[in-house]
Structure formats: structure tokens, C-alpha cells
Computed example of a mutant assay.
Amino acid sequence: MSFTLATWNINSVRLREPIVLKLLEEEAPDVLCLQECKSPVEKIPTEGFAALGYTHVIARGQKGYNGVAIFSKMPIEDVGDKDFAGLGHARHVAGRLENGVTVHNFYVPAGGDKPDREVNEKFGQKLDYLTEMRDWFSAERPEKSILVGDLNIAPREDDVWNHKQLLKVVSHTPIEVQHLAETQEAGGWIDITRQDIPEGQLYSWWSYRARDWDAADKGRRLDHVWATPDISNAGHSSRVLRAARGWEKPSDHAPVFASFDL
């Protein structure tokens, strides 16, 4: 069984329904995981997606914030969610495909502006969220699983446009990178994107603040595709669809793709 999976922080699925449909029409991934849907589940616009063959939907939502959803052409079973750090946010959902692969879709907290939990509660929440992810993976030790989503951390020096300038900027600080590394190690997760594209600058997010995001190219790789070691060798064809950042009324994130032969 071969399938292609995409992950995308859409920054409001209702507002950006047209570009989600564009992605599904032009790229046709078998599974699409969205984050920051910003919608109650019952108000997610599923009709257009279903018309394109995405008839299987698993979602967790809330009004105006957060929200995660999995759209699939293939049957997928809802296997639950976790409220890491007790935030009461819709930030995780998991589904199991018929081949036994579990797909975890995550939206890790962004962490606010100041990388100091003493003055910025959101930064503390982000670190606590990652710590609880780490502890869960350590206890459960996932198998035959794929983890995708906006993890809101660019871990490598070549995952940001300027490593030195961003060392004190939330998403690339050493403490965040360490927390993400511990979470990854606890589950034995393999970074599929970097397994396929081991060298060079690679980004999936460009700020709305840039006048010309494409020319400035001050990006960060915040969106990730990981897999457990038992299926990581089946992953291939990773790419970031950079062009989507330039579509009409875009998200500030671009979709990240990977394919698996299982």
C-alpha cells in the first residue's frame, strides 16, 4: 500500500477553504492533516472536500483557535486525542489507517514572544506540552506510526534563515530545540523530511510581516513529518510546496509532503 500524506497549518480552514480545495485538486494527497483550523468541528466545510474524494474526516475543534483535522481518501478510524499540559486546547488527534498505521496530527503551542517562562506563560505552556509528549512517547513507545504537524520549532541550523540571529527568538531557542529532541528521541521518531533532504536550507513558514516573503526568504521549518523506525525506511519523496505560500489569501505556512510504501 502506497500513500502520500501532507501536513499544513491552514490558519483557518473556513477562511482558506478555496486554497485547501486547490491543494486537493492539484496535489491529491491521500491524507491531509490540517492544523490551526480555528473552527468547531461541525462548522468545518467538509462538503467540497468530500466531493473530491475526502470522505473520511477526523477532527477536534474549538471556536476561533487551534483545531486539528485529518481528511483521508482511505478509511481511517478515530483513535482519540490527548490534552497535553492540560490546556483544554484542540491540539492533537490520531487516526488509524486500514494498514495499521497510526497518524498523529499535532499543533504544538507557538509559545508567545518572549522565551522566558517567568514572564511569558505561553512559553512555559509550550515547554510543558513538549515534556508531556516526551513522557507519553517514553511510556507508550509508539509503533507503526507517523507524526505530523506544526510543531512550532525549527530544530536545525539550516531550518532557519539565520541561526545566530534566531537563537533568542521563540521557535529556535536552545531550550525549545532540546525539548523537541527529547520528545523525538523518546518515541524513537525519525525526521522523514530530513531523511530525504539531509542538506541545505529548508523552510515551511514565512512571516506575514515580510513585505515580499519570497524575496526576503526569512523562513523557518516549523512543520514536520516523523515516522517510527519500523516504517521510516518506507518514507520517501519529501517536499515542501513552497508555491502555496504565494496563493491567494495564503496561510503563512506551506504544506509539507511525504510518501510511504507500506
Rank of each mutant, 00 (worst) to 15 (best):
M133L: 15
H104M: 06
G124H: 06
V103R: 07
N105M: 08
N105S: 06
P109R: 09
H104K: 03
E98R: 13
K126N: 06
V103L: 03
A110Y: 13
H92A: 01
A110M: 00
N105V: 10
L127Q: 11
P115F: 08
V108R: 11
K122T: 12
P142H: 13
F106W: 13
E143V: 10
D135P: 08
S138M: 08
V93S: 01
R141N: 11
R117W: 05
R96L: 03
P109Y: 05
R117F: 02
N120Q: 11
G88C: 07
A85G: 03
L97T: 05
G95S: 11
V108L: 04
R91S: 07
D128Q: 15
E140I: 12
K126S: 03
D128A: 15
W136R: 07
P142V: 07
N120K: 02
A94W: 03
R91W: 00
E118T: 12
E143L: 11
R134T: 13
A85T: 12
N99S: 13
W136M: 12
D83G: 09
H89S: 08
T102F: 00
R91N: 05
D113A: 15
T102H: 00
G124L: 05
G95D: 09
E132K: 14
V93N: 03
T131A: 15
R117K: 13
G100F: 00
W136G: 05
A94Q: 08
Y129C: 09
N120I: 02
K114C: 07
L87S: 05
A85H: 08
V103Q: 02
D83R: 08
G100D: 07
E132G: 07
P142S: 12
L87N: 04
D135T: 09
V101F: 00
A110K: 15
A94N: 08
N99F: 00
K82M: 04
E143D: 14
D128N: 10
E98A: 12
V103K: 06
Q125E: 14
D113Y: 08
E143S: 15
P142W: 12
D135K: 14
F106C: 02
N99C: 09
H89L: 10
E121F: 08
F137V: 06
E140R: 11
Q125F: 06
F106D: 04
T102D: 02
V103E: 02
H89F: 00
V119G: 12
D113V: 12
R141W: 00
Q125T: 14
N99I: 06
P142C: 07
F84V: 05
D116E: 11
Y107A: 02
H104A: 08
D116C: 09
P109T: 04
A139N: 13
G95R: 14
R91M: 04
L97F: 00
W136H: 12
M133V: 15
G111H: 03
V119C: 14
A94T: 13
G111C: 06
Q125S: 10
D83S: 07
A139V: 09
M133F: 11
A139W: 03
D116W: 01
A94P: 00
G100M: 05
H89I: 02
G100N: 07
P109V: 05
M133D: 02
E140N: 15
D113P: 03
E118K: 14
N120W: 01
R91I: 02
T102R: 08
K82S: 05
G124F: 01
N105P: 01
F106G: 00
H89P: 00
E98M: 10
V103C: 03
R91E: 07
N120E: 13
D113E: 14
A90H: 01
A139G: 12
A85E: 03
G111T: 04
F137H: 14
